[in-house]
Simulated assay, not measured.
Amino acid sequence: MLKCADGHYYVGHSDNLDVRVAAHQSGAIGGYTHSRRPVELVWSETFGTREEALAAERQIKGWSRAKKQALIAGDWDLISVLARSRSRG
């Protein structure tokens, strides 16, 4: 997960994290982060397969800002609380 200069978060997956972050940082990748540079890597995780990484990306993209910030902080208790409060709607 990247934190953009405007404070927004970008979630993606990659087979080579260093190369991908550098591409976002340099502007070589158009799209969401291009006009929001510089970016900062704030969270990453290694997954066993590309499919698992893509599933995690899709899940996290749907999370609230607060839940993403809890993930960055490693606060699993807060993630759980936020998940329960959202499901109660």
Rank of each mutant, 00 (worst) to 15 (best):
Y32W: 11
I29S: 02
R88M: 12
Y9N: 04
V39E: 00
S14R: 03
A22M: 13
R88T: 09
I29L: 12
R88Q: 12
R65Y: 02
P38F: 08
S80P: 00
T49Y: 12
D15K: 14
Y10K: 11
L2E: 06
G48Y: 07
S87R: 15
R37T: 03
G31V: 07
T49R: 09
Y10P: 01
G62M: 12
S44Y: 14
A22P: 07
D15S: 13
L2H: 04
A55W: 08
I60H: 05
K61I: 08
A73R: 10
G62H: 07
E40M: 03
V81W: 11
Y10E: 03
A66H: 06
V19Y: 14
R86M: 13
L78R: 15
R88V: 04
C4G: 00
R50T: 11
D77C: 04
I79F: 05
L82F: 07
H34M: 06
P38H: 07
E45H: 10
V21W: 09
Y32S: 08
R88A: 10
A70S: 09
W43V: 02
L71C: 01
Q59M: 14
A66N: 04
A53Q: 06
R50K: 15
D77F: 15
A22V: 08
R65D: 00
T46H: 10
K68Q: 12
Y9G: 06
S85W: 04
R84D: 13
H24F: 14
V19C: 14
V19Q: 11
K3C: 09
L41R: 03
D6K: 10
S35W: 09
W76R: 09
Q59T: 14
Q25G: 10
K68A: 03
R84E: 13
R88N: 10
V39P: 00
W76P: 00
V19R: 15
V81H: 13
H8D: 06
A83T: 12
E52P: 02
E51N: 10
L78M: 13
W43P: 01
R20T: 03
M1G: 08
A53V: 06
Y10I: 03
A73L: 11
S26R: 07
A53G: 11
R86E: 15
H34T: 02
K61L: 01
E52V: 03
L54T: 14
L17W: 04
G48M: 08
Q69Y: 01
E51R: 12
A5R: 05
E40G: 01
R84M: 12
Y10N: 06
H24W: 09
G89N: 11
I79K: 09
A23Q: 15
K67R: 15
I72H: 00
F47N: 15
A53C: 05
E57S: 03
E52S: 14
Y9H: 11
R86K: 14
E40C: 02
G12M: 03
S26L: 07
R50W: 15
A66I: 00
N16Y: 10
R58H: 14
G31P: 07
L17E: 08
K61F: 00
Q59P: 04
N16Q: 15
I72M: 00
D75C: 11
E40D: 05
R20L: 00
V11G: 00
S87A: 10
G48H: 11
E52N: 13
R86P: 02
V39N: 00
Y10M: 01
L2S: 05
S26W: 10
W76L: 14
L71E: 03
R58F: 10
L2M: 07
